[in-house]
Design a protein around this nucleic acid. Structure first.
Lengths: 252, 252
DNA sequence: CATGTTGTTGACCGGTGAGTCAGTTATGGC
DNA sequence: GCCATAACTGACTCACCGGTCAACAACATG
């Protein structure tokens, strides 16, 4: 071998590429911007990557792979059968680890959450979300089997709700300027999910088991009016201008 | 006036544009593809829209405006003070209306959910999500004031969880091939959110109020081990190839 | 039917940026 | 020192597509 490859080259390019992708998205990222930031030439870029999309793919896949590792570590298989509160605490710790990781990589995560900067990469986020949901399903199943969770749970929907809740928390996290108290957030999430919104005394009313007793102090009607389909929601004929949306260039 | 304008032109173009945007996203949508599908000329397109982005903006804004109407109709201000079960039923009906609307427009909604096809339009979805969350906050406040919801709720986090749950349900909905039983889904969602996961008997264990009694049948340890930070989650050195990801064009 | 006016068209223009490749540089072996 | 080899460079190419406008078509009027 003559002239050995500069081992820093690919690393430099990947790091620069990640920055530029985060700032501009896949479509609007310019290869020359990446190479300029990495202090490399355009040719160097094409020595290491077949194309701009290929570089993006490598960055995103290494990210999703690392996230998947956190997910796998949260599998119910990896947990010893512990008493409920200990299990919750254990779960909580792993959640915090994952969300700390998301915070550290918030730029890229934010990009991914917004569809990966391109329609053709949107499925990457979806597939991760689906994986998270599948994990949740298994947790729900074991929880029900152990008699911890309600037997009448609709597992499909519940898993969507739970993964959706964490998803939204993650989205909020990566948009923040300074780091919030992640552990406190996740404890609150756990409580909401486990206990629900409703006050203990009001729980029987949810299923209409106490249909004629008003909880609000007003006497319940036996049959309340359903939303009238004739008085449908008004739709504005003209859509108001949104000054926040970037306007098109003026005609030349 | 001579030659009257073809009033169908703009409608045809908008409809075609929506289709093409849904299929390819904003960036990869080609104006000539839009005009071809609308059976119009390229010039006609630029008679009605300043630019491609402008057409996209019009389509998206009319959509978000209509969605916002549904949201406003769900404001707690519009609800008479009703007994709890009636209120839930009322709420449910409006939810169903919104989700039926999302289903009808699932193509466009799917695009928006994936970041609007462009980084610069991603904020549109975010701002709608934030609006939905703000609505949720107000519902939680009135619910707590009426003594229906737990007083110890972390409203910020709970609102994120709830809007996140609905968000995920919506995302799942618009990806489906055939229409699911939306009403049944939303009833399940309501139950999960209101009641939580946990079985009535297990509820006290969530707060560790019964720390030494095992729910799983195994005796609780007084102090369980936290996740060991030294045995961190393994990260794969090499990321496996994903055959599903579109590969770059071969070098010429 | 001639004429003016306005809607409509599509071939063309020009900016852009991904990707190339002939030439240059660094290194190891002899 | 000198060659062989492989890494590296950046000016250049060229396909692509958003946007334009001169020409044309349809209609009203007198």
């Amino acid at each position: 071998m003559a002239r050995p490859a500069d081992l820093n080259a690919k690393v430099d390019l990947l790091r620069a590429a990640e920055q530029v992708f985060v700032e501009h998205g896949l479509e609007h990222a310019r290869v020359e911007q990446i190479t300029a930031r990495a202090g490399r030439s355009k040719g160097s870029f094409y020595l290491h990557f077949e194309s701009k999309e290929e570089a993006f793919r490598q960055i995103v896949e290494s990210m999703t792979a690392r996230m998947a590792c956190f997910l796998d570590a949260m599998s119910p298989d990896n947990e010893a059968v512990e008493p409920f509160p200990a299990q919750l605490e254990n779960w909580h710790c792993r959640e915090v680890e994952l969300f700390e990781f998301l915070w550290q990589n918030r730029g890229l995560v934010r990009l991914l959450m917004r569809g990966g900067g391109s329609v053709q990469f949107g499925f990457l986020v979806d597939s991760f979300a689906e994986r998270a949901r599948a994990q949740t399903v298994r947790w729900l199943e074991t929880g029900i089997a152990r008699g911890l969770y309600r037997k009448d749970l609709d597992i499909e929907v519940a898993s969507l709700c739970i993964s959706g809740a964490y998803d939204r928390i993650a989205r909020r996290l990566v948009e923040m300027d300074k780091k919030p108290d992640i552990a406190a957030w996740l404890r609150s999430v756990q409580r909401v999910i486990l206990l629900g919104l409703v006050h203990d005394e009001a729980r029987p009313h949810v299923d209409g088991q106490v249909p004629d007793q008003s909880v609000t102090g007003i006497r319940a009607r036996k049959s309340f009016r359903l939303a009238d389909p004739t008085t449908s929601v008004p739709v504005p004929a003209s859509v108001p201008e949104n000054p926040g949306v970037p306007r098109a260039k003026a005609h030349r």
